[in-house]
Nucleic acid binder design. Sequence first.
DNA 1: CCACTTTGTTAATGCGTATTACCAACGTGA
DNA 2: TCACGTTGGTAATACGCATTAACAAAGTGG
Lengths: 326, 326
Amino acid sequence: MTGVSQTTVSIVLNERDDAAVRIAPETRERVLAAIRRTGYVADPIARRLAEQRNRFLGVFTYEPVFPAGLGDFYHPFLVGIEECAESIGCDLLLFTSAPVVDGRRRIFHSGNRLRLADGCILLGRWLDPEELARLLAEGQPFVSVGRRDDAGGPVPYVGADYPAATAAQVRRAVELGHTRIAYVGEGSGAESHTDRLRGFTEAVDRAGITGVHIRFGEPVDVMDSLLDQGVTAIFMEEFADGAILAAEAQRRLLGVPQDLSFVALGDPTRPAGTDLEFTGFRIPRREMGWQAVEVLSAIIDGTGGTMQRLLPCQPVAGTTLAVARA
Amino acid sequence: MTGVSQTTVSIVLNERDDAAVRIAPETRERVLAAIRRTGYVADPIARRLAEQRNRFLGVFTYEPVFPAGLGDFYHPFLVGIEECAESIGCDLLLFTSAPVVDGRRRIFHSGNRLRLADGCILLGRWLDPEELARLLAEGQPFVSVGRRDDAGGPVPYVGADYPAATAAQVRRAVELGHTRIAYVGEGSGAESHTDRLRGFTEAVDRAGITGVHIRFGEPVDVMDSLLDQGVTAIFMEEFADGAILAAEAQRRLLGVPQDLSFVALGDPTRPAGTDLEFTGFRIPRREMGWQAVEVLSAIIDGTGGTMQRLLPCQPVAGTTLAVARA
DNA sequence: CCACTTTGTTAATGCGTATTACCAACGTGA
DNA sequence: TCACGTTGGTAATACGCATTAACAAAGTGG
């Protein structure tokens, strides 16, 4: 239409004004006129092909991203992720097509689409160390939401500082006169569990009080065991289990917190029915999501910075932790 | 790695088994092994450029996909969308990078990335008719979640049958002896509003009773007006407004539903604090999301079928609709 | 033993853009 | 006049894949 080359159009479109490539104002105007007349828009696909990146950030979860029946544990993370992605002009690619094997999705599988994105955010309480190791080995840009142990190298993550948050709750209990307290939960497996238990154990040792660790199971049995051991405050790894155990306490006519204190070490990861306002702390999920995108972005761009961040949890006063019963 | 050409890899990758192009099973296996070992994935951008398809479904919302402070109105849609996308092996691309102009995102803008996806799902109570018209004109595959008026042509959608659901509630009220009922809300603007009002008006006319329509505003004024007109049942366009108005009724010591009945025409689109279990209906959001993907998929594949679907809403008995006060 | 088919693989090409190297034409100073 | 910038622009190429025509090797029938 204008008799100029494709190159010239490209230069005009991208408003380049290097010294290296110059276009006469008059020519530029001619091209712009033609663009206006035809409503021409550069094909974004071809553009991406040429530029070698697509400004997609992948989001991978072992469970569905939008869990159907559940109390939206992931949601706040996604809010933060979306906000930050928007601020840096990236789109989010949800890997919904990952096939399910043995009840959960796999990162690596035949037809793995991970590299569709410039980088990837991993969500989930537990991540397969082998898959993490492989991601590291292959140099795939990624970041985990939640602290991860090394997997053949340091894993980039943005996590919650469970040890500090848990320890703070223990100190609070000690101030209120508790001398025999319990940690109820796995305490192993996922890093979020080991971190809580570690914070608990260290704080208990430092305070010189007695801490017991038992796994959750039949509420009746668990409560029997706890009462046998003279425990006055119960630290729950899982909020929902805490609700169950507190109900069991009330069934026995034990007052919460007059007779027995409860501390919930984080937000519910599954729906929990309870009237109690649990004492404990809040995981900064939205902020974690936001910062995860920041870290990932830094990795992709090759700009350095801390690739492992622990964010403080916000204490929640609640009503389930009181002075220890004499 | 395997000593074969790029062509061979492409053929194996796409599982082509034309008579025209054959690969020996042994060679195929060698290539597959290498693919598994390296986790290689074809670049979707290049793929798209060459074959014009990438198995991405775009999701566009005028508001953030993951609204921060709000009662998750979009969430159930997304659950359905994700489930169906997973079932047909597509990934979801969230257009979080769409720039905000005049307080909302725009579909079309310079650097518009819509064409990155094979097709696009549009979410939101209101969609700009001009943008819809342009999508139609350009032949962009898309589907709207929620019914839309024609915009220079029929718009593909999967919506909720508000007229039928609203009319059913009106009939229910008539059965209970109500003869003067009100529709409170905009009744215009978004299709979801006009549809509700239309269902209301038609049902009222057919039943031969009196229906009044007033906009929501200061609760005190609205309630004054409604009581002046002798209204005994109030149909609320917005759930949250209904909660506010019901609170105003109770403030005046009017019993709900003994003295005044309320019907909520759908689920809350914003957080609503209330103890009442509102009578009304439930929008089949998850199913709408699912079917939207089905429709979009059919459009992309060129297989025909109904491009406009209205799904029935599920009635909710609730406790706020009772026999009209004498 | 030759023409002819079948099998397995690849070189070449196109998709629409960004980028780079290079090239005319046109001064400019000595 | 000659060597040397400067200006304005373009041809060529890369990007990573899908597709197609072509081709070598092996088999087959007469």
